[in-house]
Design a binder for these strands. Structure first.
Lengths: 348, 348
DNA sequence: CTTTAGCACTCTCCCCCTTCAAGTGCTATC
DNA sequence: GATAGCACTTGAAGGGGGAGAGTGCTAAAG
């Protein structure tokens, strides 16, 4: 009996064949079917023996006695690991991708289109998020009075991300005071990270008691109301291709739960954040997802970090059914991830 | 035989009962069922006669001989029109809505949350869009150099909407030139509508040949690259609650098509734009949607314009199955539309 | 003239049964 | 170790045969 970690040549051959057949047909795979398609001309009986072993090792399951075998999560895991033979992306995909991503200028737009393109190229939903790091350097601030005690704060960072936030103040400030405050920040802190600006401002406000009174009071009021706070992440989560999943014959209830989760942008961000990080080079395939996220039972995440140089700027992923064309999807995700670096590196 | 437009008291009674029963059960309604639940104690036979008439007038259909009757689109139309008895919103809904919309400060946020709340309160998807009118008055402009020949344009309008756009220029401009250009616009054109600014700028650029050379050249370069162009509308379309539809027993194929359409933000914007406008006061229910949008067969749109004062700022709607709680949904849409006016009016 | 009761008829749905095909495990054989 | 053969299991598919719900029609009652 082979141990789970290491299985022989023939076992691998057969397991791979089963996984692939099951992916394309969706029905339990029997020994005869396999024997017919297998080029090595093994007899059904032989295959049955191997299959029995694979059931013992946890790679296969039987829905019931006398049905064919169905791959377990472990089988998919093994299949994907063994799949590492770098395949080139198909010209069709390449065209589709470059058509859709051509002319992108900023990260947001790139990610938005990426999620779309991923949904086109795969049979799952395309997901892309931008990680809003607090290390962003401040470029420009503007405050606009929008009514009594209401101010619109606009923050532009070096990386070209614009955040705006409508705030309610505890007391009213005239536009001139707002301009003074904005000028003060722009002149003193351009190039600082937003975090540092906040800290330094807090220090100065606390320190300067009387002298700069009016300016400092304005700044105090503004920072208190969250002028420099991170934007809620939801605007930087892009999910597309939900329709793809409906086409599949997934269980209705599972599907509903997944869709519900995908609509909670924060959870999506969290999910990708948990599984993708800079340290890891390439595409990551997460199969046993149901342990962390129960509603993702039967779904697979194929994702990669989106980097510019060494810096991680976001994540992109496909979430699809376990029965999907792994090779194809992995290749596409990997290709786009590389494109991301290339396109945005040459532009910035 | 009653003509289609005008039907008698009893017919109406029975038609209403059929529609309501069908909405709640989803199964063809028979004469006996109706006779039992009907307080007037009419016999099944009488009801059958009426039903036959209603079939003739096009209000009902039979899936097959000897099945109950099913309402047609015409029946829903009639039912909804006759429903106009303004009902008050339920306290539960009211709570839910105010909980979710509390603390909203800008239109975008309001609409985003609205789409969410609509999906919670109804059995369909919640949709909300902001109409970006070009009549917005300019408040502040900022240009930020993001790399060679790359500039980020940030435009703040009076209504508190911030638009940003990354542009590629034909030639490189240093930050100082960008600042000069921005200052020029801010000082000369604050309060103008964006359209007018563009026109006037074009005029001045064409006119001043040599004098302001450097500034005008910068401005020319910037406007040519679309610094003041409308943002693509897709960021202002909010769709939520897709999961609701999956729960229903809709036809899979129809559902897929609908979801696909909903993901094309431009189409959604177009759709709402076509059916909702300021002139019309209140909620509008569109039932025969399949003629304009084939993939919306079996779906209904319940929408209202979102106004602040007399000005239309957006639209909100529920798209759901024909079998839905119309009264409930209409009330909710109407309530939120009013809330929109109230909340944003008092704040701005 | 409208309403109702009665009745024969028509469907669909569901349950039960049988048959069928696919697949299995085991054993004996090469 | 691989294979062939065989008996066994099981779900899927197909075919009655009610049962139930509903209809249309006709004739009688109000």
């Amino acid at each position: 009996m082979p141990n789970p970690g290491q299985i022989g040549h023939r076992e691998r051959e057969i397991l791979t064949a089963i996984v692939e057949t099951y992916i394309s047909t969706g029905e339990p795979v029997g020994s005869r079917t396999l024997s017919r398609q297998n080029r090595d001309g093994l007899s059904p009986a032989t295959i049955r023996n191997v299959m029995a072993d694979l059931v013992d090792s946890g790679f296969l399951e039987q829905p019931h006695t006398s049905a064919g075998r169905v791959p377990t999560a472990q089988a998919y895991r093994y299949y994907v690991d063994q799949l590492s033979g770098q395949t080139l992306i198909s010209p069709a995909d390449q065209n589709l991708i470059s058509e859709n991503l051509q002319g992108t200028v900023d990260i947001q737009q790139f990610l938005e289109r990426t999620s779309h393109v991923l949904s086109l190229v795969s049979s799952g939903v395309g997901v892309a998020i931008a990680t809003t790091g607090p290390r962003n350097a401040l470029d420009h601030v503007y405050f606009s009075r929008q009514g009594t005690q209401k101010v619109l704060a606009v923050v532009v960072t070096n990386s070209g991300v614009v955040r705006d936030r409508m705030m309610r103040l505890d007391r009213d400030l005239p536009q001139t005071d707002l301009d003074t405050a904005a000028n003060y920040i722009n002149e003193n802190f351009r190039g600082w990270t937003v975090d540092k600006v906040k800290a330094e401002l807090a220090r100065r406000i606390a320190q300067e008691r009387s002298e700069y009174d009016r300016l400092m009071q304005s700044l105090k009021e503004l920072t208190k109301s969250g002028a420099l706070t991170e934007e809620e992440p939801s605007r930087n989560v892009f999910v597309e291709g939900v329709a793809n999943l409906v086409a599949k014959d997934e269980d209705r209830e599972h599907l509903r739960e997944l869709l519900k989760t995908l609509e909670e942008k924060e959870r999506v961000a969290e999910l990708l954040g948990a599984y993708l990080d800079t340290r890891q080079e390439a595409v990551r395939v997460v199969i046993g997802l149901e342990e962390a996220v129960p509603e993702m039972r039967n779904f697979v995440l194929i994702g990669a970090p989106a980097r510019v140089g060494e810096e991680m700027r976001g994540s992109l992923a496909v979430i699809g059914p376990t029965r999907m064309d792994y090779q194809h999807t992995i290749t596409a995700v990997s290709y786009i991830a590389q494109l991301f670096d290339k396109l945005l590196n040459e532009n910035v």
